[in-house]
Every structure is written in structure tokens, then in C-alpha cells.
């Protein structure tokens, strides 16, 4: 075919790897790849599997090589490349016996990219959707059990983000916004451990607005469902003893310094 142009990719410059593997059979290449994986030399493993797939696309090893190269990328924390390779695998081999693992690995790659509660949550939602997909498609596999566990963590994460924004608005005495956020945690994330705090914050806000019976009702629901929680003690203290008798009242100085560091 035409003169082999150097297409600017750095890896193709290294002739040594290509000479070594140009003639060897897919089996030996695949075995070398697996060995590199076990030795945790992920970049080399990914390269070997890519060569298998490109040089011998019709061998049975090509399909497994695609999956293993995706695993290598995942272990190298290059999640976007891993997701790309897995998408290709799922499109070409939907009936493969390890398809459940492919979906699961793809969901994990998304899950690893979740930011903390202060930052963008779209990756969390994508990860939750992918995990839900795994749980639906392959209900009775170990992957599904782990996916359900990770979804709980993801839901806790989303609730955490709602609480962060709720506290931001409550700090600035924008109570309508804060109520909206805390109500959403109470209604949509009942299984997370943020619910007691959300209920307590609602009690604080209702008292600040003057809706004392509503505050009492909310505190009673908190007490009924989470009797031992510290949040209930705070709400109780607010309702019974009056505004400043709560257990943890930060001094002005400590509150300001606390927020700097």
C-alpha cells in the first residue's frame, strides 16, 4: 500500500515494539498482554492488546483483547479511553459471555469520575444511570449487587450536594431556596443519612420564619424516625429552651476562622 507516512503518533515511532510483535501469533501476544496486566504494567498491556486487535482482528483473541485493553485503561485511571473501548466492545459483541462485565466496568469508569459534593454532579448522574443499567440487565450477577451498593453511595452523594446548596442559601437567609433544597432531600433521598440533618434545618428555618407549629411538626417527625440522632437533640433544644441553648453554638471568632481553613 502507499508509503507508510509517519502519522505523528509518538508510539508508532518506537520500532522496537513493532518489530518484536510483528510476526508473533495472537496467542503469544495475548498471553504477553495478560502477563503485563498481572505485573501491573498497564501501558504495555494496553499496547499489546491493541496490537492483537489490530493485527489479528479475526482471531478469537481479538474480542477478549478489546475487553482486557479496556480493563488496562481503567486501571491506568484513563476512564474516557476505557469507556470508549467498552462502548466499541458492547456494540460489536452484544452477546459475548462477558458482556455483563463490560457494562459493569463501564459503570465503574463513570463512578470513579464522580467529583466531590461541592462540584459538578452530572458525572454522578451518568454513573447512577449506568449502574442502574447493570442492575436491570444482569439482576442476579455479583456485578448487580455491587452496582446497587454503589448506587446507594451515589444517591448519598447527590443528597450531599443538595445539602451543600441548602446550607449555602440558609446561611444567606434566603429561606425559600433553602426549604426547596432540604424538602428535595427529604422527599427524594429518604434512604440517605442526610435526612435527619435536612429535617433539623427545616425546623431551624420554620422557626426563623415564625411558623412555630410547622417547626414542631417537622421536629416530631425527626424525633419519631431518628430518635437517637444528635439532630433531634438540636431541634428539641431549639423548640423547648429557646434560640441560644443548642448543644453546639460556635462563637463568632471560631465560626469565621473555621471557614477559612
Amino acid at each position: 500500500c502507499g508509503g507508510s507516512l509517519w502519522d505523528g503518533q509518538q508510539e508508532s515511532l518506537s520500532p522496537t515494539l513493532r518489530q518484536q510483535t510483528a510476526d508473533s501469533s495472537p496467542e503469544s501476544l495475548f498471553a504477553a498482554g495478560m502477563e503485563a496486566l498481572n505485573a501491573e504494567q498497564y501501558p504495555r498491556a494496553v499496547q499489546l492488546f491493541d496490537i492483537v486487535e489490530r493485527e489479528h482482528p479475526y482471531s478469537a483473541f481479538a474480542t477478549n483483547a478489546k475487553l482486557m485493553s479496556a480493563y488496562g485503561e481503567y486501571m491506568r485511571n484513563r476512564y474516557t479511553e476505557a469507556i470508549g473501548a467498552l462502548d466499541r466492545f458492547i456494540q460489536l459483541h452484544p452477546a459475548h459471555r462477558d458482556i455483563a462485565y463490560a457494562y459493569y466496568l463501564r459503570a465503574l469508569s463513570l463512578y470513579e469520575q464522580i467529583n466531590d459534593t461541592q462540584r459538578d454532579q452530572t458525572t454522578t448522574e451518568q454513573a447512577m444511570a449506568a449502574l442502574q443499567d447493570v442492575a436491570n440487565r444482569f439482576p442476579n450477577t455479583p456485578y448487580a449487587r455491587d452496582a446497587r451498593l454503589k448506587m446507594d453511595l451515589g444517591r448519598d452523594h447527590l443528597a450531599g450536594h443538595e445539602m451543600v446548596v441548602g446550607r449555602f442559601y440558609q446561611n444567606r437567609r434566603l429561606y425559600v431556596a433553602a426549604i426547596g433544597r432540604f424538602r428535595r432531600v427529604v422527599e427524594e433521598y429518604q434512604t440517605t443519612n442526610h435526612v435527619p440533618e435536612a429535617l433539623h434545618r427545616l425546623t431551624e428555618i420554620y422557626l426563623a420564619l415564625g411558623l412555630t407549629e410547622e417547626a414542631r411538626r417537622t421536629a416530631s417527625v425527626l424525633g419519631h424516625n431518628f430518635p437517637g440522632s444528635e439532630w433531634y437533640q438540636d431541634s428539641y433544644a431549639l423548640l423547648v429552651d429557646g434560640p441560644n441553648a443548642g448543644t453546639e453554638r460556635p462563637g463568632w471568632w471560631q465560626r469565621n476562622i473555621g471557614s477559612i481553613f
Binding site: N115, R119, Q121, L174
Partner: peptide
């Protein structure tokens, strides 16, 4: 809803908003 802020914290963006939820 704020999205795309992979580095900047949510409150750093939200405090620039001249209006809040419910307004």
C-alpha cells in the same frame, strides 16, 4: 442547577448569581 464546574466549588459560582431559587 450548575454543571460543568469540575474544579470550581458550587458556592463560588452561586454567590455570583444576582437571584436565588424562589425569586
Amino acid at each position: 442547577d450548575i454543571s460543568g464546574n469540575t474544579r470550581t466549588a458550587d458556592h463560588v459560582i452561586r454567590r455570583e448569581f444576582r437571584l436565588a431559587e424562589g425569586d
